[in-house]
Amino acid sequence: MSELLSLEEAQGRILALAPLLPLEQVPLTAMAGRYLGEDLRAARTQPAADLSAMDGYALAPGPGPWQVVGESRAGAPFARALAPGQCVRISTGAVMPEGADRVLLQEDAERAGDVVHAAQQPSPGRHIRPRGFDFRDGDLLIPRGARMTPARIALALAAGHAAVLAARPLRVALLDSGDELSADPSACGAHQVPASNAAMLAAMLAPLGCKVSLLGPVADNHTALAGALEQADSADILITTGGASVGDHDLIKPALARWGAEIAFWKVAIKPGKPLLVATRGVQVVLGLPGNPASCFVTAHLFVLPLVRASLGAAHPLPTTASAVVDEALPAVGARREFLRARRLGERVGLAGSQDSGALSTLAAADCLIDRPARAPALGAGSPVTIYPLDGG
């Protein structure tokens, strides 16, 4: 149980524990950031008719001139079919009248009274958005597991849907523990530090629409921890920070055992973040993160967010990577894979500051993590590296 797992093995084991949440109908207006629980197919054709792509004149076939016999505008189509030699004034997005086969641009039209000549003849089909060019009834538009962005919400609405299936919101309990933690950052003794991990984690979870409850900070004693854990009975996922290492006052493991949780594995071969703890209590999942802020953030990015995304139905829950070029030399890596807090400068990337796991100023300045494999040799400036973008840090 004390074996150090690789990043990928730990992620795989954690994703296998993801709670299966029931699906519910959700109005599309409330779907921002949530994951689609079904394949979304079009319930209508878009556009439903041939439309003009420009302002001008919808022309009947033939060389012209054309007699203007009416107008077609968006929301108010011309009601009759055109005869040869006829045209209608038309606006962008308006329905093409029956019998029209092209649109003469307004700037290419020469109009005298109700007669239109073409300074430049448009070819048949020109400046027309044909029926169904965007999508047709029954087309697969958005696959299950896709995250609903603003554009996807607009697409789903245009496809004739008012609501879609999505997993119910995930219930996440956050528990900071440690005698050194102060709940009030403005009243913090020299022997204390303000409790910040739970607030940081809550902010990381906010874009995913989780229902978050804060249970700490809690002192390092069995009674306080037991009382806090009782409040997590209804949580789908419990995330603890601090107290999961091997010190005399690291009490999370025995407290979880008394609560009824079973340790699945402990310790991952990464730096920062080695003392990651994973446990289960029935269908509940517990992730015990390190107490140092940088370690807490890195493990949350690599393990918590993927677990949450998988629980919510994401097709691709793992964090994304990118390539960059390091702008400074990096030393050789030891036995554990390292994740360096860094900042992108165009296509180059540099360290954001001290890599001490307690350095919050470095964490706040970082917008990516440099991924350095275990036992990797030293790198010179200009060398390629893999990074994990942090979407704002």
Rank of each mutant, 00 (worst) to 15 (best):
residue 269 A to T: 00
residue 284 Q to N: 02
residue 286 V to K: 12
residue 286 V to H: 14
residue 288 G to Q: 13
residue 274 K to D: 00
residue 283 V to T: 15
residue 262 E to F: 02
residue 265 F to T: 02
residue 284 Q to K: 07
residue 278 V to C: 08
residue 266 W to P: 00
residue 288 G to V: 13
residue 268 V to A: 00
residue 261 A to N: 05
residue 277 L to C: 13
residue 260 G to T: 04
residue 268 V to Q: 00
residue 266 W to G: 01
residue 284 Q to H: 04
residue 265 F to G: 01
residue 274 K to F: 01
residue 284 Q to T: 07
residue 258 R to A: 15
residue 277 L to V: 13
residue 271 K to V: 08
residue 270 I to L: 14
residue 273 G to D: 03
residue 285 V to F: 11
residue 271 K to E: 10
residue 261 A to R: 04
residue 268 V to T: 01
residue 274 K to R: 15
residue 284 Q to F: 09
residue 263 I to Q: 13
residue 285 V to K: 03
residue 277 L to F: 13
residue 266 W to T: 05
residue 258 R to D: 12
residue 291 G to S: 14
residue 266 W to D: 04
residue 281 R to P: 07
residue 278 V to N: 05
residue 279 A to V: 09
residue 283 V to W: 14
residue 282 G to N: 03
residue 263 I to Y: 00
residue 285 V to S: 04
residue 280 T to A: 10
residue 259 W to Y: 15
residue 278 V to K: 03
residue 277 L to S: 12
residue 259 W to L: 02
residue 267 K to H: 09
residue 273 G to A: 08
residue 275 P to D: 06
residue 289 L to C: 06
residue 270 I to F: 06
residue 272 P to Q: 06
residue 280 T to R: 15
residue 271 K to P: 03
residue 272 P to M: 09
residue 288 G to T: 13
residue 260 G to E: 05
residue 264 A to S: 13
residue 278 V to P: 02
residue 269 A to K: 01
residue 275 P to G: 11
residue 266 W to L: 01
residue 270 I to S: 06
residue 284 Q to R: 07
residue 274 K to Y: 01
residue 273 G to Q: 04
residue 265 F to K: 04
residue 290 P to A: 08
residue 273 G to T: 09
residue 290 P to L: 10
residue 289 L to D: 09
residue 264 A to H: 08
residue 285 V to P: 02
residue 272 P to F: 06
residue 278 V to T: 07
residue 269 A to W: 00
residue 281 R to E: 08
residue 273 G to M: 04
residue 286 V to S: 11
residue 276 L to Q: 04
residue 258 R to V: 12
residue 274 K to T: 09
residue 266 W to R: 09
residue 279 A to K: 07
residue 287 L to K: 14
residue 277 L to I: 14
residue 268 V to L: 00
residue 260 G to V: 05
residue 273 G to V: 05
residue 258 R to L: 11
residue 287 L to T: 11
residue 286 V to P: 13
residue 276 L to G: 03
residue 272 P to V: 08
residue 270 I to V: 14
residue 259 W to H: 14
residue 285 V to R: 05
residue 277 L to M: 14
residue 286 V to L: 10
residue 286 V to M: 12
residue 270 I to N: 00
residue 272 P to L: 13
residue 283 V to K: 14
residue 259 W to M: 04
